[in-house]
Design a protein around this nucleic acid. Structure first.
Length: 562
RNA sequence: UGGGGUGUCGCCAAGCGGUAAGGCUACGGACUCUGACUCCGUCAUCCCGAGGUUCGAAUCCUCGCACCCCAGCCA
C-alpha cells in the first residue's frame, strides 16, 4: 500500500464513490468522466455545492475529469447573467473545468439528427394533438394512457413535419415530437414522452437559429454520451427518468452509455433550497438580492463571509446517500467556525458601546499595547492597539446587579481589559431613563499588559476600543432566514409566513479598533468574544465600513444560563 | 389505489451473516488574558414493526407500517 492508497481508504466514502472504485478496479472504465450540468436559470446554492463537490471531487480524486455543462435547452427561462454567475461560483468554490466547458445547445444539430434517426426507426412520431389532449390521454397513476391517433403516422410524414417544425412553419404548441414507447407503462415517463417542442423564442446562445428545442430527458442522456461521461450523477427525482435515459441510449447508435446514479439532494434546516422560492424571495424583495448574506446561495454565503474551504468541508461531512434528509444548520455553521478559527486574525470591536472612564489614568495620555493576531498561531504576528482613559466596552459586559455566575464588570468587581489593564468598577452614571450610560473605574497601574502584579486571578477579560482612536462602523448581525426548521415542508402553507422578522439586525454605531480601518474587501476577522465578521463587499465605503457577521462564537454562558 | 425510492442515536452517516464507526448537537469536567479554541469523558443491549432462517442477523426470507418522488410541450 502506498501513501495515496492509504489516504484514499481513510477518506469518508459513499455509495457513488464505491461504484466508481468498483468500475475502475473491474476495468469497466480506465478513468472516469463526470459532469456538473446546471441550467442557467438561477444562481447556484449550497445544494448545488454538494453536487459540485461530488462530481468535481470524484474526478479529482480518481484523476478523471469533470465537465461544466450548461443545460440550456429551455430559452424561455435562461439568461447569460445566470451563466456567468454559475461559472464564478463553481470557480470560487475551488474547482477547475479547464477546457471542458460545454453547452447542451452546442449539440442541437446532433440532437436533431438523432431525432431524425428515431423517426426513421419508427421510434418517434410527430403529434398534432393539443397539449390538453396529450395530458388527458396520458392516463393517471393507476390507469394506462391512450395512444394518440398520430402514433401510426407514416415515417415519411413525421419526417416531413419534423423538418417543417424546424423550419418554423408551425406555431408554438401546435406540434411536438414524441418518442414511441409504451402508453400503458406504469412509469409515466415512458408513455410516449415529448422530446421536442416548438418555442419561437430567442436562445441566449443560438439566437434565432432554432425554434424547436429538445426536452431534458432527450437532451441530457445524449449530451452525456456525446461527452463520454462515465457516471451521470443526478438527484433522486430523476430516478423515474432513468428508464427513459437508458431507452434513448439503447435505441440509438451512440458513442457510449453512461450510468445514471441518483443521490439525495441537500436540504438545510431553517432555509429553502428551491430555485422557485429563492427567485421569489429576490423578486418580491423579501431579501436584498441573490447575494443577500441570508441567502443559501453561493454568492450569498460568500458575502456572508463563508470560505470555499468551509463549504467543501461541509459537503464532505454530510455524506452522500439516498434518504431524504434535512441537514441541521449547525453543521454548516460549525464548518465555517472550524475554518475561520484557524485562519481569521483576531481584532477587537464593540458592537453596543458603553463608555468606560478610567479615572486615575491621566487625561490625554495614550499608550499602545501589543496584541496577538492569533492566540494559537504566532505566525500571524501582532499589532498595536492604542489605549486611553476612555474606552468603549460592550453593554452586555456590565451589569448593575450581576446575576450569579456573571464574572464580567459590575460595581466593585475587577475585570481585565484585554491586553491592557485590570480595572475595577467604582461607580456608574445613569441617564433620565435609568439606563447606565457611563462606568467609572480605577485601574491597577502594575497590571500593564494585562497581568496582575501579585499574580491574583482575574476571571473576566473583556474587549474594548479606545474612544479617541475608535473607528466607527456599521455591523450587520445575521440570523437564520426562517423561524421554521423546515419552511418549505408540507405542513407549511406558505414559506413566506415562516420568514424570521429578526433575520438581520443592523447596528450603526459600532466601534472598531483602528487596525480594522485597513481591512480589505471580503477579508475576514474574528472580533474577539463576538464572532466571525467580514467586510461587506457591496456596501462598504472608504471611511464607512460595513461588516457582516458570518457566525457567532460558541457561547456556553448565555446559552446555558439564560 | 400503479410505478420508483427510503427507513441505523435529536440531525447526518458507516455497516453488506459474526455480535452497532465517525461527525454535528447535547451534557459533564480540565485548561484559559476570547465564558472562544484545545483537551478528556458521557450519550443506540440496539438498527421502522411483526414473524421466520441460522450456532449467530441491522445485515438473508416473509408480511406489514411510515415517509419521499412521478400524471410540464420545466430541469
Amino acid at each position: 500500500m502506498n501513501g495515496t492508497e492509504n489516504n484514499q481508504s481513510e477518506k469518508a466514502t459513499n455509495f457513488i464513490r464505491n461504484i466508481v472504485i468498483d468500475d475502475l478496479n473491474s476495468g469497466k472504465h480506465e478513468s472516469i468522466v463526470t459532469r456538473f450540468p446546471p441550467e442557467p436559470n438561477g444562481y447556484l446554492h449550497i445544494g448545488h455545492a454538494k453536487s459540485i463537490c461530488l462530481n468535481f471531487g470524484l474526478a479529482g480524486e480518481f484523476k478523471g475529469r469533470c465537465h461544466l455543462r450548461f443545460d440550456d435547452t429551455n430559452p424561455a427561462k435562461e439568461e447569460v447573467e445566470y451563466e456567468e454567475s454559475i461559472r464564478e461560483s463553481v470557480h470560487w468554490l475551488g474547482f477547475e473545468w479547464g477546457e471542458h466547458m460545454y453547452y447542451a445547445s452546442d449539440y442541437f444539430e446532433k440532437l436533431y439528427g438523432y431525432a431524425v434517426r428515431l423517426i426513421e426507426m419508427g421510434k418517434a412520431y410527430v403529434d398534432d394533438l393539443p397539449p390538453e389532449q396529450i395530458r388527458a390521454m396520458r392516463g393517471t397513476l393507476t390507469e394506462p394512457g391512450q395512444e394518440s391517433p398520430s402514433r401510426n403516422r407514416p415515417v415519411a410524414e413525421s419526417l416531413d413535419l419534423f423538418r417543417r417544425m424546424r423550419d418554423g412553419e408551425f406555431a408554438d404548441g401546435s406540434l411536438v415530437l414524441r418518442a414511441k414507447i409504451d402508453m400503458a407503462s406504469p412509469n409515466l415517463n415512458l408513455r410516449d414522452p415529448v422530446i421536442y417542442r416548438i418555442k419561437k423564442v430567442e436562445h441566449h446562445r443560438t439566437g434565432a437559429t432554432w425554434c424547436i428545442y429538445p426536452m431534458y430527458d432527450y437532451a441530457h442522456c445524449l449530451s452525456d454520451s456525446i461527452e463520454g461521461i462515465t457516471h451521470s450523477i443526478c438527484t433522486l427525482e430523476f430516478e423515474d427518468h432513468r428508464p427513459l435515459y437508458d431507452w434513448v441510449l439503447d435505441v440509438l447508435a451512440v458513442p457510449c452509455h453512461p450510468q445514471q446514479i441518483e443521490f439525495a439532494r441537500l436540504n438545510l434546516s431553517y432555509t429553502v433550497m428551491s430555485k422557485r422560492k429563492l427567485l421569489e424571495l429576490v423578486q418580491e424583495k423579501l431579501v436584498d438580492g441573490w447575494d443577500d448574506p441570508r441567502m443559501p446561495t453561493l454568492v450569498g454565503l460568500k458575502r456572508r463571509g463563508y470560505t470555499p474551504e468551509s463549504i467543501r468541508n461541509f459537503c464532505e461531512t454530510i455524506g452522500v446517500g439516498k434518504s431524504d434528509s434535512i441537514i441541521d444548520m449547525s453543521i454548516l455553521e460549525e464548518a465555517v467556525r472550524e475554518d475561520l478559527n484557524r485562519r481569521a486574525p483576531r481584532a477587537m470591536a464593540v458592537l453596543r458601546p458603553l463608555k468606560l472612564v478610567i479615572d486615575g489614568y491621566p487625561d490625554g495620555q495614550t499608550e499602545e499595547f501589543d496584541a496577538a493576531n492569533h492566540p494559537n498561531d504566532p505566525s500571524l504576528g501582532t499589532r498595536k492597539v492604542p489605549f486611553s482613559n476612555t474606552v468603549y466596552i460592550e453593554r452586555d459586559d456590565f451589569m448593575e446587579v450581576p446575576t450569579k455566575g456573571f464574572f464580567r464588570l459590575a460595581p466593585g468587581a475587577e475585570v481585565r481589559l484585554r491586553y491592557a489593564y485590570i480595572v475595577k468598577c467604582e461607580s456608574f452614571v445613569k441617564n433620565e431613563a435609568g439606563e447606565v450610560v457611563e462606568v467609572h473605574c480605577s485601574y491597577d497601574p502594575g497590571s500593564r499588559g494585562g497581568n496582575a502584579p501579585d499574580g491574583r486571578k482575574i476571571k473576566g477579560t473583556i474587549h474594548w476600543v479606545s474612544a479617541e482612536h475608535a473607528e466607527s462602523a456599521e455591523v450587520r448581525l445575521y440570523d437564520r432566514l426562517f423561524v421554521n426548521p423546515n419552511p418549505g415542508g408540507k405542513n407549511e402553507a406558505d414559506y413566506r409566513s415562516a420568514l424570521n422578522p429578526k433575520s438581520v439586525e443592523i447596528l450603526s454605531d459600532c466601534k472598531l479598533e483602528p487596525s480594522l480601518a485597513k481591512a480589505s474587501l471580503e477579508s475576514r476577522f474574528q472580533f474577539e468574544r463576538l464572532g466571525y465578521f467580514c467586510l461587506d463587499s457591496k456596501n462598504s465605503a472608504p471611511g464607512a465600513p460595513v461588516f457582516n457577521r458570518t457566525a457567532t462564537l460558541r457561547d456556553s454562558w448565555t446559552e446555558g444560563k439564560r
